[in-house]
Design a protein around this nucleic acid. Structure first.
Ligand code: SF4
Ligand code: SF4
Lengths: 137, 137
DNA sequence: GAAAATAGGGTTAAAATAATCCTATTTAAC
DNA sequence: GTTAAATAGGATTATTTTAACCCTATTTTC
């Protein structure tokens, strides 16, 4: 319950890795996978999600790779979570109303949605910049 | 990602149901399952967890059932989550260190654990009493 | 044209969650 | 004391979600 997905962790590690390499530097998935210690294939999927969300840009072909698309003060942990998992839904009815058999009589929805927004706000409160400072390697 | 388990929702509904019935009243799983619209068997498991955690007490035998063990101002949503799912672990290494292949070189753990505690605090900030008020049926 | 890289569809494997089944025990009522 | 209504809980199965893997296409530099 309430566990972050592996793909999100892959993505977050990739972003902090790229951030330490500087905004202009192009890094390959292979390089990141080796450095961080992740599976290249799966990390590649995470990168594709980050690209689609506009967090990273890619360069194809030989000498290609990924780099951050925006300054690290303007990307939050929430952005990465949303890029990779889509907007989080604490309860299933948020995704699809009729996926819950008691939807019409449920009185908890408001509170749950509230909670969800607060969690999202928590994630949005950390930028990659502040995360790196907190990490202080 | 970050979705609450079904069992937790069962448990939370059961607690708010019992709360509206008053502290002394004994209610059966069958009654709750019918009223709320849940599967009796599965709700029963949730109730057993609530009992073990000291949130509900049970009376066995004919005319038996469950009732709340503590005043609703002293039970929080976090208590229910912990009773049912155990303490939440946002990342797998929280449960078991060697479940993550990059554990020894990971710099994100501190932040993740921090985040986890903040989420737990969010849940702990709502008592059943305040939840009922927020719900205002 | 060869090689190195991203892009991405599709399938399989593993794990977590949810649901069900079944039996034991407790206790009130008759 | 027998029956019926209830909790207690182990065990299994089904379903869903997540993670991993495979394979091919495309892009681009040399
Ligand atoms: S129980 Fe309520 S909040 Fe949870 S999924 Fe169903 S309708 Fe949504
Ligand atoms: S990546 Fe880091 S935080 Fe996540 S499970 Fe592994 S060690 Fe823990």
């Amino acid at each position: 319950m309430l566990q972050v997905s592996r793909k999100f962790e892959y993505g977050l590690h990739a972003v902090t890795y790229m951030a330490t390499k500087g905004l202009g530097r192009v890094v390959t998935v292979k390089e990141m996978a080796d450095e961080i210690g992740f599976s290249q294939e799966f990390l590649s999927k995470a990168m594709q999600s980050l690209k689609r969300a506009g967090i990273a840009t890619s360069v194809q072909g030989v000498n290609g790779g990924y780099m951050l698309a925006r300054p690290i003060t303007e990307v939050t942990v929430a952005d990465i979570a949303i890029a990779i998992e889509g907007r989080p839904h604490l309860v299933r009815c948020g995704v699809k109303a009729d996926s819950c058999e008691i939807f019409s009589s449920c009185h908890h929805r408001g509170y749950m949605n509230n909670l969800q927004h607060k969690i999202q706000d928590l994630l949005a409160a950390t930028t990659i910049h502040s995360l790196l400072q907190e990490i202080e390697r």
